[in-house]
Design a binder for these strands. Structure first.
Length: 722
DNA sequence: TTGTTCCAGCTTTTT
DNA sequence: GCTGGAACAA
């Protein structure tokens, strides 16, 4: 009794319904800021405290490690227990755990290693080259998208038929070759983790039965982001049991471009007919004006399940709109406002600058730096993705598994040890011909004595180094193994010679890697019978590590709209609201993609708690070219009554209809060509010689008879065509 | 083997 | 306009 009350006491009606619903399929449509994670955590607590389930009987799946950590933490706090052993994790993390537990049934080597996307791309590049395929017609990146796209849909190369289309068939051939390569090297990419885990359950009745029995309840966060194979996996686990509890928001689906299937929400309703839908529409985050603007914007999307956020809180301030001259001015304005916020006692960490593309951060960084304002940019290289770290890890991997070709390629000549192109090509050739690993090929080559003495020594030197290191490392603790390779691989000396001031940081990072190994909590992840090194390497690939260390300083947050999802800030600047930038150029001619951009804008607006600034520039340097973009169409979708136009000093209430430059529409565009003859009221007849600028900025140079050269602004001049 | 130059590419991102 | 990678020269 007490327990029930304590779990649902602090919740609103809709949240209570969701948390205390009987054990059945549930679809929770949770708007931004409506307490989604809260519901998830309390639901699990309810099942433990009230329904009497053991935490072992509960599975909770998220997309990011951060979300998983947060959920675990909040659950521990609420239940006052250790949720250590509970299966809370990312799709990839849980899939990895399954594969480690059942490598045989999954048809994997039990020493398999996880490749991150960087590893994957390198492998594909190598493969494309090795097969003599024109990488301008089949760019490795596209090959990677193709392969991952197929895997996301659950399609193996062997299920695919040749189409007679050269492009498709070459892709297919590469997909096949890639699969063979991965099998031979014992490597598994991210998409493969999911696909394999699905096949593991699908093809092994006993394994499936075991997990179906174990997990009485399955919970999914951010369900709108699941792709086909993830949903298929969830369905297998909950087959015939009606015990899938999903939380999501169709309006915040912004990852269709990487395979997320919003249809999964609709299919859920078909596949679990006795499900219950609960909408969480009360928002606890933003002011009324912010919410109403967001609602108005998202209403322009046709494909929606329908949901309208509301709040008990005040309307708050109007949303501010600033029109900048150019991107410099925009950044200046934003930084000026932040300065004021801080002067008025605000915290920098409550402020976020959100943009559509990473390249936009630079202007703001410069201005912030000039004013000595601490800031943090999200989305850079993470610790385990740094080159020096990846190289060190490659040494560890090849020690663990000599046949790991991806790692072999990475370090055979890093640091340089005189293994030239000719030598490695000979090795690659043998490997390809005999379908063996580079390591095995190198051994054969050395035994054949077919290399020059110098090349042979260099290659032998590398193999011996690895052998010697593996020998020495065998008995050592994890951190000692890492220390050993950092010291003996020659990487430190190698980076010491590097110029450009990076040397110091790189060496520090390598030392930090030893620390990371020492801190690595083996038991935490390991119910499996694995050695510590393999777990550490998997951890590195699956977690990526923290971005930057200065987490604790009070600083302004800069990030893309995508990475802002799930976060909230008192003061938000949504910048670069210009057609072509946001919505992105590539998304403007397709309704579905445009709707995704709109959802992205909706995500951005709903990050703001108290104050929201929208900015756009009339002129912007893009790819080295001056452009005059029109204000984003999304701006026009926000009703004028929620907006106020802002200058640097004074606020000006908005009176006129929104797009103040729309009147200079395309009517004149393309009218003037070089050589066009015209007449001007004052200057008489002339010929157009040059044109530049767009829209209001469009100017033409005209050679007037008897008057000479003149530059005229088209928006101010009336010219008669002749 | 290293340094230079040239050239393509250029949304969004986790795992 | 900037960056990373590849090709080429010394």
């Amino acid at each position: 009794m007490n327990k029930q009350i304590s779990i649902i006491d602090s919740l609103n009606d809709a949240q209570r319904l969701a948390v205390s619903a009987p054990n059945q399929a549930m679809l929770i449509l949770a708007g931004a800021g409506s307490g989604k994670t809260r519901v998830l955590v309390h639901r699990i607590a309810w099942q433990v405290e009230v329904e009497g389930l053991s935490i072992h009987n509960i599975l909770a799946v998220t997309f990011t490690n951060k979300a998983a950590r947060e959920m675990r933490g909040r659950l521990e706090e609420l239940l006052q227990i250790s949720a250590h052993a509970m299966w809370i994790g990312t799709f990839h993390g849980l899939a990895h755990r399954l594969l480690r537990r059942h490598p045989k049934q999954a048809k994997l080597a039990d020493t398999f290693q996880v490749m991150d996307s960087d590893d994957q791309l390198r492998v594909i590049k190598r493969l494309v080259k090795g097969l003599n395929i024109d990488d301008s017609k089949w760019p490795p990146k596209q090959v990677m998208w193709f392969i991952n796209g197929q895997k996301d849909e659950g399609v193996r190369a062997r299920y695919m038929l040749e189409s007679g289309n050269i492009y498709q068939d070459t892709m297919l051939m590469l997909y096949k070759a890639y699969e063979e390569f991965c099998d031979r090297s014992g490597l598994v990419d991210f998409a493969e983790l999911l696909l394999r885990a699905h096949e593991l359950l699908r093809d092994n009745e006993d394994v499936l039965q075991f997990y179906q029995d174990r997990f009485k309840q399955v919970h999914v966060d951010e369900f709108q982001d699941t792709n086909t194979i993830q949903y298929a996996w969830l369905r297998l686990l909950t087959e015939g049991k009606n015990n899938l509890f999903v939380v999501g928001d169709d309006d915040q689906s912004i990852y269709a471009w990487r395979g997320a299937k919003i249809e999964n929400i609709y299919n859920f309703q078909k596949h679990y007919p006795s499900h219950q839908v609960i909408k969480l529409e009360q928002n606890y985050r933003s002011t009324g004006n912010i919410l109403k603007s967001a609602n108005a914007l998202i209403n322009n999307n046709d494909s929606r399940m329908g949901k309208e956020l509301w709040t008990n809180s005040e309307d708050g301030e109007l949303i501010s709109l600033y029109t900048a001259f150019n991107e410099q001015d925009e950044a200046y304005f934003v930084v000026e406002k932040i300065r004021k916020w801080v002067d008025d006692g605000g915290l920098r960490q409550d402020v976020a600058i959100l943009y559509r593309s990473n390249a936009q951060s630079r202007q703001f960084e410069e201005k912030l730096m000039n004013t000595a304002t601490p800031y943090r940019v999200y989305g850079g290289l993470r610790f385990f993705e740094r080159m020096e770290i990846k190289n060190a890890l490659a040494y560890l991997r090849i020690m663990s598994n000599h046949n790991d070709d991806a790692s072999f390629e990475r370090v055979f000549n890093t640091p340089t040890r005189g293994i030239g192109i000719k030598t490695i090509d000979a090795v690659r050739l043998i490997a390809r011909e005999q379908q063996i690993s580079l390591w095995q090929a190198a051994v054969i080559l050395l035994n054949n004595n077919s290399l020059s003495a110098r090349a042979s020594n260099a290659l032998k030197g590398f193999l011996n180094l690895i052998k010697q290191l593996s020998g020495e490392a065998k008995e050592a603790a994890l951190f000692e193994q890492v220390k050993l390779i950092v010291e003996k691989s020659g990487l430190i000396e190698f980076y010491k010679k590097e110029k450009g001031g990076k040397a110091e940081v790189r060496i520090e990072n390598l030392e930090e890697l030893v620390n990371a190994a020492q801190m690595f909590d083996f038991d935490e992840e390991n119910e499996e019978n694995l050695n510590e090194l393999d777990m550490f390497l998997a951890h590195a690939a699956l977690e990526g590590g923290e971005m930057q260390a200065d987490d604790y300083e009070d600083c302004v947050q800069l990030m893309t709209l995508h990475s802002s999802k799930g976060l909230e800030f008192k003061l938000v600047f949504l910048v670069g609201l210009e057609d072509g930038l946001f919505p992105a150029q590539q998304s403007t001619d397709d309704v579905a993609r445009l709707e995704e951009e709109r959802r992205l804008c909706y995500v951005g607006i709903t990050r703001a708690m108290q104050q929201l600034y929208l900015t756009h520039a009339e002129s912007r340097c893009l790819y080295g070219k001056e452009t005059n973009p029109r204000p984003s169409r999304f701006l026009k979708e926000i009703p004028v009554e929620f907006l106020q136009e802002v200058r640097i000093r004074a606020n000006v209430a908005r009176s006129m209809s929104m797009p103040k430059r729309a009147k200079y529409s395309a009517q004149q565009e393309g009218t003037y060509k070089l050589g066009q003859r015209i007449r001007h009221a004052k200057f008489g007849e002339g010929v157009v010689l040059q044109m530049e600028g767009e829209a209001t900025q469009e100017r033409v140079q005209i050679n007037f008879q008897g008057v000479g050269l003149k530059w005229l602004m088209l928006s101010y001049t009336n010219l008669e065509l002749l």
